[in-house]
Computed example of a mutant assay.
Amino acid sequence: MAGQDYVPLYLAGTQASCIAGAAITQGQLVVITGGTLVGGGVNPTVVPTSAATSAQVGVAAASAASGAPVSVYFGGVHLLAAAGAINAGDPVVAAANGAVADLGDGTTYDQVIGHAWSAAANGQVAVRLGEF
């Protein structure tokens, strides 16, 4: 497994070994795009998010090249890149480049991946994943 450079603010969830389906930067929001059953387990394939999605998302613990293993946190509170204005308490959705955005026009509640625990400042926001 690749080295670990990113640590969440709080952790309540699962950390899983995945396979990078594209280049991933530590701390990016990633989405599961596939998976392979391996000896009674599964190796999910993940890529950085590109838009709102109802698919399972997590946060990359380390940077990884495409095809390399990468540890991903599913759940917990994370400091993520913010795409636009977000207020504390707002529901958030996945956005381009592994960031998050405020739930807005064109997105639906089934695409909410968590809630902001802070207002966005300096391009970052604290988000609790999986809290609906």
Rank of each mutant, 00 (worst) to 15 (best):
V42G: 07
A22W: 02
T33H: 03
T14K: 08
G35H: 04
Q28D: 10
G27D: 07
G35E: 06
I24C: 06
C18G: 01
V38S: 05
G27W: 05
G39I: 11
G35V: 05
G27S: 03
V46S: 01
G27R: 06
A22E: 15
G21V: 09
A23H: 10
S17V: 14
S17R: 14
V30R: 07
G35Q: 06
G41I: 01
L37E: 15
T25G: 01
G21Y: 02
G39A: 12
G39E: 15
Q15P: 03
N43K: 14
L29V: 09
L29Q: 07
Q28L: 08
Q28Y: 01
I24A: 04
I19G: 05
V30A: 09
A16S: 12
G40H: 00
A23W: 02
V31S: 07
I32K: 07
T25L: 06
S17T: 14
V38N: 03
G27T: 07
V47Q: 13
I19N: 08
A22Y: 01
G27L: 01
G34L: 00
T33C: 01
V38A: 06
T45F: 05
G39S: 14
T36N: 08
T25M: 07
L29D: 04
V38L: 13
G39R: 13
T25A: 14
T25W: 00
C18I: 03
C18H: 08
A16L: 14
I32E: 13
V38Q: 11
T45C: 04
Q26V: 11
Q28S: 05
V46N: 00
T33W: 02
A20K: 06
G40W: 10
T14W: 09
A23L: 07
I32F: 08
G35Y: 08
G27Q: 02
G34N: 04
Q28W: 05
V30T: 11
V46M: 02
I19T: 12
P44I: 01
A16I: 13
I19A: 10
G27E: 07
T14F: 10
G35M: 02
V47H: 00
I24L: 07
G21R: 02
P44E: 05
T14R: 12
S17A: 15
G40L: 02
I19W: 07
G39Q: 14
N43E: 13
G40N: 01
S17P: 11
V38I: 15
C18Q: 03
T14D: 12
C18P: 00
G34A: 10
G27F: 06
I19M: 14
Q15S: 11
L37M: 14
G40D: 05
A16G: 12
I24S: 04
G41H: 10
